[in-house]
Design a protein around this nucleic acid. Structure first.
Length: 863
DNA sequence: TTAGGGTTAG
């Protein structure tokens, strides 16, 4: 902290002077609380909120001789004893400077008392304790009966209090900018709650019922950073999605102006491109591309918002790449071209990477080849411009692509070229090792590490840059049954001073456990802890699932029993040393208990109950509850499975599919159909989930067991195709064809059955089959049903449908055209009748309705 | 502000 900051914006009524003597100060003490003093307190409170957080109040007083308020404040770093008073700056506000001294009623005092307590708590950096005070203050304000004029001054006061609270909550403070500690996260959550207290208060009068733009901006930045941090941490409580949604809502408000208080002079130019991109990036990283799309829609349609840039496109490409949506990537390329985006290396790198993540290596290669330094290839995209040149990252991305398909030859060729061009770093080594491992060429991976392990100075790196490659190879040895080589590699790392990290230990422990070497695994775990590393919940998960997996090779049912016991004992040991299992781990154990002979369902229920009661895992988590459903199913206890299903407030698709599978397995098809009907038909809009191909496969395959329920199966199949617009997968096709062949060995077929089988074969054409796989199936069907099919339907069978219908595709992705943006994008600004109209800061709602846009789909609705 | 590499997973 430097000098006492002379406030960003001094109080209109305050002037600053130096204190003269201590004597003067002492005259201010010991005054009775009177109306003047209370006014002074209020002036102080308002003033202190405008000073930087480091300043704090020492004393509030009034000169006895001249009626002036005196406010003393100083930087917190200098507060320790009386003598520092001398260096204190002070603020004086004259009484006259108040046009009308605030009338102090009992109500106001009640609120003031809370305000003073809150300010004190904030000064002690205690946001967590200050929040309940703020809540109380708002509650009282909403309840009390007051005069209109008084309401205005209290509103002003309460607003200042909330802003002070929000400033403290959203300041990243003295920390290094990382948001990993729980307190910082909690603070930000409370800050956003405070904003909503203000927005929802009925007591505040305008403009104080709206939040200042600067506060919302601070909130946006803090909350978005928070959700990024949570995503990186892999928090599984879903909290990060809520804070992401919050980011979006705040962005909406800033754009539409709903609930926003702006400085009269300033236009809403406060949102920078960086702000948009920050939120966009958070959604892209989370794979929430529907939301990312909405942000872009907002940005495009708001006349004052910044233009879409190459950064925007880079972020979008990354996001669509992550969810493997090649259609949207192609479409983004066209959109960027249309918007006159001139690509740079980063944009093309993003594009190549996105294609690779969608398994479209050919498309990636086309871009890559036109970026190579000695290329003669004409640019295929962004044609008007010469392609930017490839850099080290371009090569590394491309190598990842070769690694992904196990093409070691191409990877090695590329490596040779990179070596020649002196473009090589530790990521290159790691990726090349990854290529070798993906091609199951572990010897080659070992050779690369031998030759290309980076020589480093320990102090420069928190960890060795090649520890990832070693970890991957060690894991591969472990999974390939070469435990001895894994162990040797672990030793070899020490020789080359590559320190194993959490990942390495986790893989090694899992490798040992998979081979039944539980005691050794425990020793490695101890070694891990003694080397200063903390096992994570993933270590726990890997350890226990490896133990359970080690039983799978065995035919002996008793083995699983003993492995479950071992798993439970490890769980106890880990929990004693403070490591919490996650829901995946518990689910693994619960399911394994269900598979035991006889099933150990009651034990599983006790385990879940205990962990939930001890608050180790959340109540009725989807993963664990689904495991319980499966375990109950193994025991044939459909009632218990139903009880478990009912624990889920809103069961998700996996849970429902599991339950349907369980009821079909227990021959309770009617229960299955009831549950299906309830969730996917009657309560569809409430549960907001749609069935998928697995849902239908489960039901159809079960119903097709007997010919009497075949009409129901047929009906479901057509519902899947016509209403849900879901394509079958190969498994479902085979299930149906096999069942039909089984039911009709003599070649008898009703008309409906003939229509059904013809439709199934037509649909089968839409899928990509390996050589003659489909031909064999068709011949099998024709051999049995030749005569019956030939007359009416078989003609259709030869018709080849080469590509999937676009509507089907949208449906499969769970989109309609509007949400996917195909019919919305690009119309925003161009629909404005004149440049003047586009520039004017029209409230977005009127702007939208004038153009007939649906505000829900466009992302403009304030949620 | 944006691009590359490793562990568990209903």
């Amino acid at each position: 902290m430097n000098e006492p900051t002379q406030t960003r914006k001094p109080l209109k009524t305050a002037t600053y002077i130096r204190p003269r003597t201590n004597k003067q100060l002492s005259t201010t003490t010991g005054l009775k609380r009177n109306r003047l003093l209370q006014s002074a307190v209020m002036v102080y409170l308002v003033a202190s909120m405008q000073f930087s957080p480091g300043n704090s109040l020492i004393k509030v007083g009034i000169f006895r001789k001249s009626p002036k308020f005196i406010l003393l404040y100083q930087t917190s770093s200098r507060i320790n004893n009386k003598q520092t008073i001398r260096g204190v700056s002070k603020t004086i506000a004259t009484e006259e400077s108040f046009q009308e001294p605030p009338f102090v009623s009992a109500n106001f005092s009640r609120i003031q008392r809370l305000g003073i307590r809150l300010t004190g708590q904030l000064q002690q950096q205690n946001v967590l304790e200050a929040y309940p005070t703020l809540q109380e203050l708002m509650r009282i304000f909403d309840q009390i009966q007051i005069r209109d004029d008084e309401r205005i001054s209290i509103s002003e006061y309460v607003d200042a209090t909330i802003q002070a609270f929000a400033r403290k909550s959203f300041s990243t403070g003295d920390s290094d900018g990382t948001l990993h500690d729980k307190n910082t996260q909690r603070r930000i959550v409370l800050g956003s709650k405070a904003i909503y207290l203000q927005l929802q208060s009925t007591a505040l009068v305008p403009p104080y019922n709206a939040v200042p733009e600067s506060t919302l901006l601070a909130a946006l930045r803090a909350i978005t950073q928070l959700s990024e941090a949570q995503i990186n941490n892999g928090d599984e409580n879903g909290e990060e999605l809520r804070s992401l949604e919050l980011s979006f809502r705040i962005l909406q408000r800033l754009l539409t102006g709903v609930g926003v208080r702006r400085q009269t002079s300033s236009r809403s130019s406060a949102l920078s491109e960086k702000d948009f991109n920050m939120v966009l990036n958070a959604f892209s990283n989370a794979g929430k591309m529907d939301m990312a799309h909405r942000i872009v829609a907002l940005q495009e349609r708001t006349p004052t918002a910044p233009q879409l840039s190459k950064v925007t496109y880079s972020i979008l490409l990354k996001g669509y790449g992550r969810i493997g949506d090649v259609n949207h990537i192609d479409w983004l390329v066209r959109s960027a071209e249309k918007n006159g985006i001139v690509p740079d290396t980063i944009l093309l790198n993003s594009l190549i990477d996105a294609y690779i993540n969608c398994n479209a290596l050919d498309k990636a290669r086309v871009i890559f080849e036109q970026m190579e330094p000695d290329t003669t290839v004409q640019p295929s995209v962004f044609i008007a411009h010469p392609s930017p040149r490839a850099n080290l990252r371009t090569y590394n991305i491309m190598m990842k692509g070769f690694a992904k398909i196990g093409d070691t030859d191409s990877a090695l060729q590329l490596a040779a070229k990179m070596k020649q061009q002196r473009k090589w770093d530790s990521v290159t080594t790691n990726t090349l090792v990854h290529a070798a491992v993906a091609a199951k060429n572990l010897d080659m991976a070992e050779d690369i590490l031998m030759e290309r392990t980076f020589k480093i100075n320990d102090k420069d790196y928190p960890q060795h840059p090649n520890v990832e490659a070693y970890t991957e190879l060690l894991d591969a040895y472990g999974k390939d049954g070469q435990l001895d080589k894994a162990a040797r590699l672990f030793e070899c790392m020490k020789e080359r001073s590559v320190q194993p990290n959490e990942f390495t230990y986790t893989c090694f422990i899992a490798a040992l456990a998979r081979h039944g070497k539980i005691d050794q695994a425990k020793r490695v775990l101890a070694l891990m802890i003694s080397s200063g590393l903390r096992p994570t919940s993933i270590t726990c998960s890997a350890f226990i699932s490896a133990i359970i997996a080690s039983s799978e090779a065995s035919e002996d049912p008793d083995i699983l029993d003993s492995k479950v016991d071992e798993g439970c004992s490890i769980l106890r040991i880990l929990m004693k040393s403070g490591i919490r299992p996650n829901t995946a781990t518990v689910a693994t154990l619960v399911e394994a208990m269900g598979r035991c002979q006889p099933p150990r369902v009651s034990e599983a229920l006790v385990l879940v109950d205990k962990l939930e009661n001890d608050r180790i895992i959340p109540d009725a988590s989807p993963k664990v509850t689904t495991a319980v459903i499966r375990a109950c199913g193994s025991a044939g206890d459909i009632g218990a499975a139903l009880d478990a299903l009912r624990r889920l407030e809103k069961p998700d698709l996996v849970a429902l599919n599991a339950f349907l599978a369980v009821s079909c397995k227990c021959n309770c098809e009617s229960t299955a159909l009831q549950v299906f009907d309830f969730h996917f038909r009657q309560k569809r809009s409430f549960y907001r989930i749609a069935p998928d191909v697995i849902t239908f496969s489960t039901l159809i395959s079960s119903l097709m067991k007997s010919r009497t329920s075949l009409p129901k199966a047929t009906k479901l199949y057509f519902e899947m195709r016509e209403q849900e617009k879901i394509l079958p997968d190969k498994t479902l096709i085979d299930i149906i064809l096999k069942a039909m062949l089984r039911h009709a060995p003599s070649g008898s077929l009703t008309k409906n059955e003939a229509v059904f089988i013809t439709r199934v074969l037509q649909d089968a054409e839409l899928l990509a089959w390996d050589t003659d796989q489909l031909g064999r199936r068709k011949r099998a069907v024709q051999n049995v049903f030749a005569d019956l099919l030939r007359d009416n339907c078989i003609k259709g069978l030869d018709r080849t449908v080469s590509s999937v219908n676009e509507d089907d595709l949208f449906q499969r992705k769970g989109w309609n055209k509007v949400d996917s943006g195909f019919s919305l994008w690009g119309r925003g600004r161009s629909n404005a009748k004149s440049p003047a109209e586009a520039k004017r800061d029209t409230p977005v709602d009127t702007f939208l309705s004038k153009h007939g846009w649906n505000d829900v789909d466009s992302g403009f609705r304030i949620l």
